[in-house]
Simulated scan of single mutants.
Amino acid sequence: MRTSKRDRILDAAVNVINRDGVRAVTFESVAAEAKLTRGGLLYHFPSREALLRGIDEHLVQAWETSMETLLGKRADEATALERYQTFVRVSAQSATRAELMFMLESADPDAERPWGPAVRRWAPLPPEAGAAEDSAALDNFVARLAADGLWIYEAMYEGQLDEGVRALVAERIAGLLAKSDGSPHL
């Protein structure tokens, strides 16, 4: 399937961010990376804000697609345990500077960003105070926090973790996940 110019632009913008950071995203830098003219870029994204919003949605869509591909179904078709397991495994294999930067931006509760809803679909929120006694729910949330930590570590210290070690860490985190009966999932 042929990549659309819009996707080519978004992929180029993500490359610029991964290499040089969000501040480096200009129409000129992205156009050069995409091998398009500035006018070609403006046709698809009339403002820098529209481009940044497009990048954010593009990253979330790619992240969710990797989750669905690994699991073989959508989040709403999976059990909570399956979603957590998938979240842990994808977090262990895909950490980019762009994802981290945009996910951190979406932490602003006043901003309408796609990351929050996507993450909540795959890794439910922590148990409420009264439900914290549910050891399975708490174990699953601890595993999610560990996966988040691995993901952030990989994004911040790109290439610092040996691939084999990363796989062992991901499996150890997955082992923290609890079955519905509360026993560890190994």
Score class of each variant (00 low, 15 high):
64 E>N: 01
173 I>T: 07
179 K>P: 04
66 S>L: 07
53 R>I: 08
102 F>L: 13
32 A>W: 06
172 R>L: 06
171 E>R: 13
161 L>M: 15
111 A>H: 05
171 E>V: 01
34 A>H: 03
13 A>P: 06
32 A>C: 09
8 R>W: 04
48 R>F: 05
102 F>E: 15
17 I>M: 08
58 H>R: 10
31 A>L: 05
15 N>S: 15
106 S>C: 13
168 L>H: 06
118 A>Q: 01
176 L>P: 07
3 T>W: 00
101 M>W: 06
146 A>Q: 10
171 E>G: 06
177 L>D: 09
123 A>F: 03
62 A>P: 00
129 A>R: 09
6 R>P: 05
168 L>M: 06
55 I>Q: 02
43 Y>N: 10
93 Q>P: 00
100 L>F: 13
177 L>M: 10
6 R>M: 14
38 R>Q: 02
94 S>E: 15
148 D>M: 14
108 D>R: 11
23 R>S: 11
145 L>A: 14
9 I>T: 10
34 A>T: 01
51 L>V: 04
100 L>T: 07
158 E>H: 12
18 N>A: 03
64 E>H: 04
51 L>T: 07
100 L>C: 06
55 I>W: 04
120 R>Q: 14
14 V>K: 09
17 I>V: 15
48 R>N: 08
122 W>I: 01
100 L>K: 02
82 E>R: 00
183 S>P: 01
113 R>C: 09
159 G>H: 11
49 E>M: 07
56 D>P: 00
36 L>F: 08
116 G>T: 09
24 A>G: 01
162 D>V: 11
85 Q>K: 14
81 L>T: 07
10 L>W: 02
63 W>C: 03
7 D>P: 01
21 G>E: 11
75 A>M: 09
124 P>Y: 10
18 N>Y: 03
128 E>F: 02
62 A>K: 07
103 M>D: 05
126 P>E: 09
32 A>M: 05
181 D>W: 12
44 H>A: 11
30 V>Q: 04
62 A>Q: 04
91 S>W: 07
34 A>G: 00
119 V>A: 00
33 E>D: 03
165 V>F: 08
39 G>I: 06
140 N>M: 13
150 L>S: 11
167 A>R: 05
11 D>Y: 03
89 R>E: 10
90 V>I: 15
